[in-house]
Design a protein around this nucleic acid. Structure first.
Length: 206
DNA sequence: GAATAGATTGTCT
DNA sequence: GACAATCTATTCT
């Protein structure tokens, strides 16, 4: 079956058709592949956050809020939920769970793997800069992901996620959702242990 | 290294 | 009309 042993298989829809909590954890170590603009850029996912639908005050789909923006989360798993943030940044999410359950996983940081010069150019940073994709807005810019990719099928097409070796994962609280009360403290942010490519909070002592 | 302010627009009240 | 699942430059220590 394998034409090449270099390229791991694209994750099937069944990977996404589970709880956001599980998918968020299992996404760590997988490869996010973008072919935007005909150029391939690849990053290894090192940080994610789970957003759990109607019960989660931090989720856009809290209380089942269903608008043109959140619509894709109510559909089947394995599609892209992209939204604009602070008027100038994009954030890329993977829709999880079954149809009708508006859950999603925010991809917060990737470790640049392939197409680094392209990522640097898109970020308008010199090659060798170390903050290419360590944040939700940054990775969208580096991979060329925009609103135009809202609703994209992640099991085929220009944005896909392929399997990768399992990595050690640590959980912590989510970022930038202080308004969500008790929900802000849930340990629903996942990161590869020890990765220097994660966003924000870095350990002060190493 | 840490803290702070400003950028800028789609989305919802 | 207010605010947001952020990023960057700037200021201070």
């Amino acid at each position: 079956m394998g034409l090449s042993t270099d390229i791991p298989p694209t994750l099937p829809q069944s990977f996404y058709r589970r709880s956001a909590l599980i998918v968020a954890r299992e996404c760590i170590g997988k490869f996010l592949v973008s072919r935007v603009g005909g150029t391939t850029t690849v990053g290894r996912i090192v940080e994610t956050e789970a957003y759990r639908g109607p019960d989660d005050a931090a989720a856009h789909s809290y209380r089942g809020r269903r608008t043109p923006r959140t619509e894709v989360m109510f559909g089947p798993a394995g599609y892209a939920y992209v939204f604009v943030l602070y008027g100038m940044h994009h954030a890329f999410n993977v829709v999880t769970a079954r149809r009708g359950k508006p859950e999603a996983v925010l991809i917060r940081a990737i470790q640049p793997i392939e197409g680094v010069p392209v990522m640097a150019r898109r970020r308008r940073l010199p090659v060798g800069h170390r903050s290419l994709a360590d944040g939700p807005g940054k990775l969208c810019q580096a991979l060329g992901i925009t609103k135009e990719h809202y609703g994209a099928d992640l099991t085929q097409g220009i944005i896909t996620i392929t399997d990768g070796p399992r990595a050690p994962v640590v959980a912590s609280s989510r970022v930038g959702i202080d308004y969500a009360g008790e929900w802000a403290n849930k340990p629903w942010r996942f990161a590869e242990r020890g990765s220097v490519f994660v966003s924000k909070v870095r350990s002060t002592s190493v």
